[in-house]
Computed example of a mutant assay.
Amino acid sequence: MADNAIGKIRNWQWTAAKTWRPQAYYEQNDWRATWNGEGGGILINQASHHIDLIAWLFGMPQKVYAHLKYGSQRNITVDDDVTAVLSYANGMSGVFTTRTHDFFGTDRLEILGDKGKIIIENGDSMNMKVFEQEEQLWSKDLDISAFKAIEENAPRYQEKVFEFHDRGQNPYVNIMKNFSESITENAPLYATREDGERNVELINAIYLSDWLQREVDIPFDQSLYLEKLNKIMEKEREG
């Protein structure tokens, strides 16, 4: 993407549902899956890592529209099912879905560009298909007969498959080592404070969109978000 290999990004879609959790998981500790103890559900816990990658790969969206379900399949008060549509100033759009009640699970990220497509499955393989020129250029010259025969005479593209294997490295150890080296050796951080703030802002925008049941601009009204959150927390405390 940094090298513009698949051209200008049009759309992306990420189904991140390899986050199945049984009821017993939530009952390990009182703070789990509560607004007062954890600050949210799957968005603030498991899917925060996906949201972080979304902001890193595609930047911050201009608008967010979200639909969340709270305790839909588990006895919890927070979100366990999320669908969010993100719109960007450059015309790009993205859809993110995640849930904790899908035992079979799916982890699939598709990124569509003018010149090709990237598909990442389960975080361990990537398929990239790249046209010789932008789709809007080669497709405009197709007549109807060529269109009907497209499956037999597909436009030329290059395809590459990349495999990623677990090297046995502990990511938590690497992160803590990087943090300590940033203090002792002035090493650049893998993830900065700004990265974290951006991640939280996007998560909060998704929550606020669902609470208001409308599309939310980014940046959004932080005081309105806190007002809504505090009411939800108070209601949870009252039981």
Score class of each variant (00 low, 15 high):
residue 151 E to C: 12
residue 96 F to K: 00
residue 232 I to P: 10
residue 137 L to I: 11
residue 13 Q to V: 03
residue 147 F to A: 05
residue 129 K to W: 01
residue 149 A to K: 14
residue 126 M to D: 02
residue 4 N to H: 12
residue 223 S to D: 03
residue 187 A to M: 09
residue 197 E to G: 01
residue 20 W to K: 06
residue 114 D to R: 03
residue 179 F to N: 11
residue 143 D to L: 05
residue 15 T to N: 15
residue 45 N to W: 09
residue 35 W to T: 08
residue 236 E to K: 09
residue 127 N to I: 14
residue 6 I to G: 07
residue 225 Y to Q: 13
residue 14 W to S: 03
residue 38 E to K: 11
residue 223 S to Q: 15
residue 235 K to Y: 10
residue 81 D to H: 15
residue 212 L to A: 10
residue 6 I to A: 06
residue 217 D to H: 09
residue 32 R to D: 01
residue 25 Y to N: 11
residue 117 K to T: 14
residue 127 N to C: 02
residue 166 D to W: 06
residue 47 A to S: 14
residue 12 W to N: 03
residue 63 K to L: 14
residue 100 T to Q: 12
residue 102 D to G: 02
residue 95 V to M: 14
residue 214 R to T: 14
residue 62 Q to H: 09
residue 186 N to T: 14
residue 184 T to M: 08
residue 22 P to V: 10
residue 34 T to V: 06
residue 189 L to V: 10
residue 184 T to Y: 10
residue 150 I to D: 02
residue 41 G to R: 06
residue 121 E to H: 12
residue 127 N to R: 11
residue 7 G to R: 07
residue 130 V to S: 03
residue 16 A to H: 15
residue 146 A to I: 01
residue 145 S to L: 12
residue 62 Q to L: 12
residue 20 W to D: 11
residue 35 W to I: 03
residue 18 K to S: 05
residue 156 R to I: 07
residue 64 V to F: 01
residue 79 D to K: 00
residue 138 W to T: 09
residue 45 N to G: 00
residue 94 G to I: 01
residue 58 F to M: 05
residue 94 G to A: 04
residue 118 I to C: 12
residue 143 D to H: 07
residue 70 Y to I: 04
residue 190 Y to C: 08
residue 149 A to I: 04
residue 144 I to G: 02
residue 134 E to K: 09
residue 232 I to D: 05
residue 189 L to Q: 15
residue 118 I to M: 13
residue 45 N to Q: 09
residue 238 E to K: 12
residue 157 Y to R: 06
residue 133 Q to H: 06
residue 186 N to W: 07
residue 88 Y to T: 04
residue 102 D to C: 00
residue 27 E to P: 00
residue 87 S to W: 03
residue 30 D to L: 10
residue 159 E to R: 13
residue 15 T to W: 11
residue 50 H to Q: 05
residue 195 D to L: 14
residue 126 M to Y: 05
residue 38 E to N: 07
residue 92 M to S: 01
residue 106 T to L: 13
residue 100 T to Y: 00
residue 201 E to A: 02
residue 23 Q to S: 13
residue 188 P to Q: 05
residue 84 A to G: 09
residue 191 A to F: 15
residue 228 K to M: 04
residue 190 Y to G: 06
residue 217 D to N: 08
residue 148 K to P: 02
residue 228 K to L: 02
residue 152 E to S: 10
residue 53 L to Y: 10
